[in-house]
Computed example of a mutant assay.
Amino acid sequence: MSVDRLLVNLDLNLLVTLDVLLRERNVTRAAEQLGCSQPTVSAALARLRRHFGDELLHRAGSRYELTPLAVQVAARTPPAVEGIRRVFDVRAEFDPATVEREFTIITSDYAVAVLGPIVARLVAERAPGVRLRMQQTGPHVVDHATETLRTVDGVILPHGFLADMPYTDLYEDRWVCVVARDNPAVGERLTLAQLREMPWVMLYHRPTAFAPAAQQLRMIGIEPRVDIVVDGFLQMPFLIAGSDRIALLQEQLARRIADAGGVRVLECPFDAVPLAEAFWWHPMYRSDVAHAWLRELLMEAADELKAAR
């Protein structure tokens, strides 16, 4: 494989400076963030301008704005910086008691609520120098899975969305229906007719982004009348309380927040396939000892969650 002459001649320290400069849009503030002098950052900006053949930052009144080229570059620098950090985070050995490292996991607010506290406790007990960054999942994760998994440690997501990527099974959960505690039209049991008639609160409601149980409704011939679309599960009970709306929630989450959300938890009047939650990760982590530790810790947390049910 031939050597990339651009990379050979490039000072990678400039990448960090570029990232901060484009984010702060101010040389003085960038210098403060980087812990260096303003002349040093000004000199780095001059080198970057020569490299790109573009001003990158131009004055607009009393402030600086990004040039059109800089806008494109700004979208690419954070993943590039993160990629470099991950390369130099790799170690032949991993001692959780002494290491300082950040793990980034993309997941739903549901998984953070039910699994997150156990994971956080185990990390605090065994790896005090490790920091967890939990990022909210969204449609972009599924639509650009390979690209996303290169920039994070993994994604907690149910089976049925990703393929051809390594995964670690975690736990299963049941789907339940949630209605307002004081909804007079709903008794102890729901009917399929009520599912057709009642207004719904739905997650995402897009072709590639949906709650799996909602997709099952359509498979049995029920097209939900969607009233409100949200991008997280924790919001749902509070949009149902005091109304005639309905939603599908994972049982472990629903029972945790039913009282605070002013809702009742009812069995689904159809055979909802359980949610099978897994941790998905990029093949490049297969031999990473730190990542293997993280996967084992997530499985242990999931086992503890299952035992507590």
Rank of each mutant, 00 (worst) to 15 (best):
M1D: 09
S2D: 11
S2M: 08
V3G: 03
V3L: 06
D4I: 03
L6R: 08
V8F: 04
V8K: 01
N9D: 07
L10T: 09
L14A: 07
D19S: 08
L22D: 01
E32T: 10
C36R: 06
C36Q: 01
R47N: 09
L56W: 03
A60Y: 13
R63D: 07
R63L: 12
V71C: 11
P78N: 07
V81C: 01
I84S: 06
I84C: 10
V87H: 11
F88T: 12
R91S: 10
E93P: 00
F94P: 03
P96D: 05
P96N: 14
E100K: 08
T104L: 04
I106M: 11
D109E: 09
A111H: 06
L115I: 06
G116N: 00
P117I: 03
V119S: 13
L122V: 14
V123P: 14
A127P: 12
A127G: 10
R131K: 10
M134Y: 07
G138R: 09
G138F: 07
P139V: 07
H140W: 14
L149A: 11
L149M: 15
D153I: 06
H159C: 07
H159P: 00
H159N: 08
M165S: 13
Y167A: 15
D169G: 10
E172S: 10
R174P: 00
V178T: 06
A180P: 15
R181V: 12
D182Y: 10
D182S: 15
D182M: 13
E188K: 12
R189E: 15
Q194N: 08
E197I: 04
P199F: 06
M202C: 13
L203M: 09
H205V: 05
T208I: 04
A213Q: 07
A213Y: 06
E223H: 11
I228R: 12
V229L: 14
G232F: 14
F233N: 15
Q235H: 12
G242T: 14
D244Q: 10
E251T: 12
A254W: 05
V265F: 14
V265W: 02
C268N: 08
D271W: 06
V273P: 07
A278I: 02
A278N: 00
W281A: 14
H282N: 13
H282P: 08
R286M: 11
R286N: 12
V289G: 03
L294W: 00
L297G: 04
L298N: 01
L298C: 03
E300K: 04
A302C: 06
D303R: 13
L305F: 11
L305W: 02
A308D: 12
